[in-house]
Computed example of a mutant assay.
Amino acid sequence: MNLNATMLGQAISFVIFVWLCMKYVWPPLTALIEQRQRDIADGLIHTENAAKELDIAKANGAKVLEDAKKSASELVEQGNKRRAQIIEDAQAEGVKEKARLVAQGQAELESERNRIRQELRAEMSDMVIATAEKLINRNLDTDANRDLVNKLITDM
Rank of each mutant, 00 (worst) to 15 (best):
N2K: 08
A11H: 12
V18E: 01
W19N: 13
C21A: 15
M22W: 11
K23G: 10
Y24M: 13
V25M: 09
P28T: 01
L29P: 01
T30D: 02
L32C: 02
Q35S: 13
R36G: 10
R36C: 06
D39T: 05
A41Q: 08
D42V: 13
G43I: 02
L44Y: 09
L44M: 07
T47G: 15
E48R: 10
E48T: 14
A50L: 04
E53Q: 06
L54D: 13
I56L: 05
I56R: 05
A59Y: 01
G61F: 01
A62K: 11
V64C: 01
A68C: 01
K70T: 06
A72H: 05
E74Q: 04
G79D: 13
G79E: 12
N80F: 05
K81Q: 06
R82L: 12
R83P: 03
R83Q: 10
I86A: 04
I87Y: 00
G94A: 08
E97C: 12
V102P: 06
V102W: 09
A103Q: 12
A107W: 01
L109W: 02
L109A: 12
R115V: 05
I116Y: 02
E119F: 00
E119M: 04
R121F: 07
A122V: 15
A122N: 11
M124Q: 07
D126G: 12
I129C: 04
E133P: 09
E133D: 11
L135H: 02
I136N: 08
N139L: 05
N145T: 04
R146F: 05
V149Y: 01
N150D: 06
L152W: 03
D155I: 00
